[in-house]
């Protein structure tokens, strides 16, 4: 079954490690996107109780 679904998977092999500049750019992107998601309330807890029984 899955073998026939082969077309659904693309493999990416990282041949070289990211350069310092590329890594920096991705890290900045990560932090800025985290900030945006927090600001917009996406994927973030509405309060710290959620994990203790909050109905989220």
């Amino acid at each position: 079954m899955a073998k026939q679904g082969r077309q659904s998977i693309e493999e990416t092999i990282i041949e070289e490690a990211l350069s310092a500049k590329e890594l920096e750019q991705l890290l900045v992107g990560f932090l800025e996107a985290l900030e945006k998601e927090q600001r917009l309330g996406i994927l973030t807890p509405k309060n710290e109780d959620e994990v203790k029984g909050e109905s989220a």
Partner: peptide, 26 residues
């Protein structure tokens, strides 16, 4: 499946990536 997580997926060294990720150029 969020924007922030896609950057993290692009940073972690991997042979196969599934889900949203980032190219080297972001």
């Amino acid at each position: 499946y969020s924007e922030a997580s896609s950057f993290l997926a692009g940073i972690l060294p991997a042979r196969v990536r599934l889900g949203y990720s980032r190219h080297r150029d972001g």
